[in-house]
């Protein structure tokens, strides 16, 4: 007779797994109402800490070579592949889908990492340009990462939606504070365990679980967040966030396409450089 060792689902901030500073957690049950787990319920101070961690990780991550970032994203796919069975079990328990549907979701999530890892060192040459100007100058336009991006993962997907949200943001050197689906947050924390062991520097990805409506206004008004992926918000929450975010001109985006280079470009700024010819 052995007692199961249950997993405590905590937050993922700056590369470590703290409980919420508020000490709160909330209840997750499956589609039939059966209790599954008590994940942490993040407070606005956890959000603040996550933004600080993301900001301090930004310099190193955006300064790494695109090739290196691509390798690390690919590494995340490798590690996830090895833990696929755990993800499948979690998705079956929480979403109540069949194991083959869960397996499909996990495989698609792994493939998403691979797809975006390929984009890392290509985005500059495909979406940057060499411009013709009337003068003795080389003129380049280069897409650069924006900084700290907050993201609301789609509410209906426990794993795939989150990966589809995070991967395009970090591929180019942004760091992210992601809020997991409110009702389906468990795979998000398991994903955090994958990322923590994928050579991804601490703070590049931070994952919060909790009440979307509670965190959204604080994300909207936070002056150190540069952009928001608001896909997981309701239209009313989205509108409120855009109003609050106007204070520091946050770029707020929502996406219909699940996987697209547009999701990368949404969190890049184009910078133009003039360089005299012959020097």
């Amino acid at each position: 007779m052995r007692i199961d060792v249950k997993k405590t689902y905590k937050l993922f901030i700056g590369g470590s797994f703290p409980r919420s500073e508020s000490g709160r957690c909330y209840e997750i049950s499956n589609a039939k109402g059966v209790f599954i787990a008590n994940p942490a319920q993040a407070s606005r101070k956890d959000l603040r800490d996550a933004v600080v961690a993301a900001r301090s990780a930004f310099g190193g991550w955006s300064g790494a070579t695109a090739f290196n970032r691509g390798q690390i994203l690919y590494r995340a796919a490798e590690i996830m592949e090895g833990r696929a069975a755990q993800f499948v079990d979690e998705i079956v328990a929480v979403e109540g889908v069949t194991s083959s549907a869960a397996k499909k979701q996990v495989q698609e999530a792994i493939d998403t990492w691979v797809w975006y890892s390929g984009w890392c060192d290509k985005i500059g040459s495909i979406f940057g340009s060499t411009n013709q100007v009337s003068g003795a100058f080389y003129n380049f336009t280069i897409p650069e990462p924006m900084g700290v991006v907050a993201a609301f993962a789609p509410q209906k997907s426990s794993l795939l939606g989150l990966v589809q949200t995070i991967a395009p943001i970090i591929a180019t050197g942004n760091t992210v504070v992601a809020v997991a689906s409110q009702k389906l947050p468990l795979s998000a924390i398991t994903l955090a365990e994958v990322l923590a062991t994928s050579d991804l520097p601490g703070g590049v990805v931070n994952i919060l679980t909790g009440m979307t409506a509670e965190l959204a206004p604080w994300i909207g008004s936070h002056m150190d967040i540069d952009a928001v992926d608001a896909t997981g918000l309701t239209s009313a929450q989205d509108k409120e966030l855009r109003v609050a975010g106007s204070e520091n001109l946050k770029r707020v985006s929502t996406f219909k396409a699940e996987q697209s280079p547009q999701r990368i470009l949404a969190f890049m700024e184009h910078k133009t450089v003039w360089h005299p010819i012959g020097i």
Partner: peptide, 9 residues
């Protein structure tokens, strides 16, 4: 101000 400031300020 009621919202979080950033190091840019």
């Amino acid at each position: 101000d009621g919202h979080y400031a950033g190091p840019n300020y």
